[in-house]
């Protein structure tokens, strides 16, 4: 069997998906903390998504900056759930999870508490490290430091030793 993973048709589909992700919430690269260190932005560049054909939603989702240094801006979230999985499977506390469905889906802490009131969060920063966009970030820390590439090897190593 021959599997094609890259063709013009597939590229069109990928471009479409990136455009839908960009239109779904409020992604404004020039004012984003993760500008130049964002996987969505890099994917748009790689695929040549030079404009979004859909009308944007311009969401006003809640931003939670109550934690000492961790901030979540849900307008930038693409709901990849990497933060939820790293919180559950690597840190082992499962502070983060999703609430609601469809376009209303949001990442929450514990039972939808403010982050500062979350009693299970260990402030380990792994959620900020794995966030592909600028949705969870560490206040006052350069994003290239937060998203240091070693994290992938570190996560892999922890998985294998488990």
């Amino acid at each position: 069997m021959e599997v094609t993973t890259n063709s013009d048709r597939l590229k069109d589909y990928r471009k479409m998906v990136v455009q839908i992700l960009l239109a779904e919430r409020t992604h404004i690269c020039s004012v984003c903390v993760a500008n130049d260190h964002c996987e969505l932005q890099a994917m748009a560049k790689e695929l040549g998504v030079e404009h979004v054909m859909f009308e944007r939603n311009w969401t006003a989702e809640p931003v939670d900056s109550t934690h000492d240094f961790l901030v979540i801006d849900r307008n930038r979230c693409i709901l990849c759930t990497r933060c939820i999985r790293v919180c559950d499977q690597i840190e082992g506390v499962h502070t983060l999870d999703l609430k609601l469905r469809g376009k209303d889906t949001e990442v929450i802490m514990d039972l939808d508490e403010k982050w500062v009131n979350s009693c299970s969060c260990t402030s380990c920063r792994k959620c900020a490290k794995v966030c592909p966009v600028g949705a969870i970030y560490i206040e006052g820390e350069p994003i290239d430091y937060t998203k240091h590439k070693d994290i992938a090897e570190f996560v892999l190593a922890r998985r294998q030793h488990k």
Binding site: A44, K45, G48
Partner: peptide
Amino acid sequence: KMEGKTKYG
């Protein structure tokens, strides 16, 4: 051709 050349922000 804009692939890989343009980026937002």
